[in-house]
């Protein structure tokens, strides 16, 4: 019903939505909410345990979208929104920084990756994050689609293993095995790129 109420034929395509945002039309923002609100809620719920936090993260995402366009013109609106929503959720997570605010799946996913880095990186974190991001890009590009999906679900989307197993129609042990193999490959990749692991 929500989507129907906000359905506006003037914004039938993502390109039309982007153009509407460029023209500063609030109706375009409503149309984005109607079309991608579910996607954003689904994503932020992986990072935020509290319903109010989730709502605020979605609102933050919409605000960031409104501020970013113009001048930014994203190649893919859903990709851009996903990036914004993830960042908004993580920012809110850091802002809250209280027990119980972060779902368990999100915490354990990061624990799994944390062990791949040295205890003391010795470099500025920001620079290291950029370098790691570049390495991750190359790593993801090398993965077969299914493996990449597993990586993205777990470490980009912070999905719990049991949810991944249900979504992909396999057992949790299969997912865990795949994740272990992925981390092993990533470790090798990091070593080959000069990260002291």
């Amino acid at each position: 019903m929500e989507a129907m109420r906000h359905h506006n034929p003037a914004y039938a395509t993502d390109e039309a939505l982007t153009e509407g945002l460029f023209r500063r039309e609030e109706a375009a923002l409503e149309a984005v909410q109607a079309r991608y609100g579910g996607l954003m809620k689904r994503l932020v719920s992986r990072f935020l345990g509290d319903a109010r936090d989730r709502e605020e993260a979605v609102s933050d995402t919409m605000l960031r979208l409104w501020q970013a366009i113009p001048p930014h013109r994203p190649a893919s609106l859903p990709a851009f929104l996903t990036t914004l929503a993830r960042r908004a959720a993580i920012d809110r997570q850091r802002h809250n920084n209280r027990a119980g605010a972060v779902p368990e799946g999100c915490l354990t996913a990061l624990d799994e990756l944390a062990e791949l880095l040295p205890s003391d990186s010795g470099t500025e974190d920001e620079l290291m994050a950029k370098e790691l991001g570049r390495c991750l890009n190359a790593f993801l590009a090398e993965q077969p689609p299914r493996r990449r999906e597993i990586f993205l679900r777990r470490y980009y989307g912070a999905e719990p293993v049991r949810d991944m197993a249900a979504a992909m129609g396999v057992s949790t042990s299969t997912i865990e095995k795949e994740l272990k193999a992925l981390r092993h490959s990533l470790k090798k990749k990091l070593e080959s790129e000069g990260f002291a692991v």
Partner: peptide, 16 residues
């Protein structure tokens, strides 16, 4: 660091 690194990845992965 990992959280930030994932944020630094290409937008195409976000699209995927």
């Amino acid at each position: 660091i990992w959280q930030n690194a994932i944020n630094e990845t290409d937008e195409k992965w976000a699209g995927e």
